[in-house]
Amino acid sequence: MTLSILVVTDQRDGHLKGASLEALSEARRVAAQAGGGEVVAALVGSGLSAVIEEAKTRGVNRVLVVDDEHLRAFSASAYAQAVSRLIPKLTLPWAIFLPDSALGRELAPRLGALLGAGTATAVVEIHADPAGKVTVKRKVFGGKATETLELKGTPVLSLRPNSFAVDAPAAGDPPVEKVELGALPVHAQGVAVEKVVSTRGDTPELTEAAIVVSGGRGLKGPENFVMVEDLAKVLGAAVGSSRAVVDAGWRPASYQVGQTGKIIAPQLYIAAGISGAIQHLVGITNSRCIVAINKDPAAPIFKVADYGLAGDALTILPALTALVTKSKGP
């Protein structure tokens, strides 16, 4: 019998997002860890031909597709129904992985409820033993504690972005099978999207970016915030801010990192001119490496940071931008 891990990807914007690539890569590692098994990509949505080709390059054994006009707008209910149509195509369904994106976070519990399966969101580690038992780790209490969970049934897991390595694309031509959506229950019908409003232009999304550069009131005025954006640009990073910056109207609320804003977990977080109020720290403690730049060496941010520069962000930011630009060459 072949154990199967089904990976439901998120391609709301027309291609496989970073977090979906992490889920596909981690599924391969977990399958290997459990002594072999197949990784099946599940593509659910409408107008998926380009994404199917993208999924085929990700080292998966098979691709299952539910491509239907009724799935054009995201409805957790309809998408859960669609994924459930794929389960009979697996010899021995073993686990279902999703990215912990906005879509995955909503879909995973709904799917878990539909299947009556153990469900965990925002997992950061997955272990499988050869007997098939799945345990996961997740951060709780704003990153101040870690819990290990054992899950029953065919576990449904959403994987926190930036927590798993992404494998390079692999050659191969895995078979693609299309599955009919069929009739949907009433609660899975009737969602219509009028429009999508972009709030961030070309910069990466805060919750998914590998690097985030944030600015605070230490930048003195809105005209200096561009220094944060310049450094972010050369690093390919997302831009965030403290609550004070949003309250002062320098930047819109979508920039705010912290308890009442975005909770992020990048590989590298650079806080410039941010003193480190508790409500901000809660949003960043899961970052792998934290750099603090602040004039006040006693600022609380230095207690949680890995590296500290006690100095003026207004001079250090431009120096960093210049050096990164130089090191990248012409």
Partner: peptide
Amino acid sequence: LEGGEEVFS
């Protein structure tokens, strides 16, 4: 949603 908001019904 990542990078923006969806207006929907």
